[in-house]
């Protein structure tokens, strides 16, 4: 069953000098409970594809379908809030909020009762291996691996079915990188979420159920 589908997606944008065709007629489908790696060289359009799948941009041609409904027709803010969470290479935690508050933030946007949100945030933080004494620490007081795990906890807490990760291990050492990848694999295989990772790292890509290769904005079948 397809949860998310890209249907002949194209996306172009204009920079200072020219119009760049970042994605050209990409079609692919993503199912729940599976992991996907999108690989490719820098500038191949993989991050742009991720932003289209996350509803951060709307395609110039084609469409992204979530459960059969186009992102053009839905409220993209609500789509990101309720269905698609994004994890970034550089963590992107709110620097002034503690680890716990960072995880609570998307729950607040969903108007979840405070006590319930707090309990859920604690569960998610523990699930990604953050110790209780670290809940009240600010991002600057956490290691890179811990920050990325807090970012994953934030993405999970909202209960989103689709996890989109842009180079989630890019800034981590091997040990932390492995931890993060294991968490993402567990999310797909044990919790039935759809995990899509953009990565340069072919070793990580090899651990995913399916690999999609981007080249010059075009998707090629993976190995």
């Amino acid at each position: 069953m397809e949860l998310l589908k890209a249907n002949a997606l194209s996306f172009s944008y204009r920079n200072k000098y020219q119009t760049v065709q970042a994605v050209k007629g990409v079609s692919c489908a993503f199912a729940p409970g599976r992991t996907y790696a999108i690989v490719g060289k820098s500038g191949s359009g993989k991050t742009t594809l991720l932003s289209l799948l996350a509803g951060l941009e709307l395609p110039t041609e084609g469409e992204v379908l979530y459960e059969g409904k186009s992102t053009r027709e839905m409220d993209c803010d609500a789509y990101r809030r309720d269905h698609a969470a994004v994890i970034y290479q550089n963590y992107n935690l709110f620097p002034l909020l503690t680890a716990e508050e960072n995880v609570l933030y998307p729950l607040k946007l969903k108007h979840m009762p405070k006590a319930q949100a707090k309990q859920l945030a604690h569960e998610q933080l523990k699930a990604v291996g953050i110790e209780e004494e670290e809940f009240k620490r600010f991002p600057a007081q956490l290691s890179g691996g811990q920050q990325q795990r807090v970012a994953i906890a934030r993405a999970l807490a909202a209960g989103n079915q689709i996890i989109l990760a842009d180079e989630p291990t890019g800034n981590l050492d091997i040990s932390n990188g492995e931890q993060v990848v294991n968490i993402l694999l567990r999310l797909a295989h044990e919790e039935g979420r759809c995990v899509i990772i953009v990565t340069h790292d072919l070793e990580i890509a090899a651990q995913m159920d399916e690999v999609l290769t981007m080249r010059d904005g075009v998707l090629e079948p993976g190995e």
Binding site: D77, N92, P106, A158
Partner: peptide, 14 residues
């Protein structure tokens, strides 16, 4: 700008 963009990615409406 970065914080606002992050808030938007988390689903906060404009």
């Amino acid at each position: 700008a970065r914080v606002y963009a992050l808030m938007r990615t988390l689903g906060m409406t404009r």
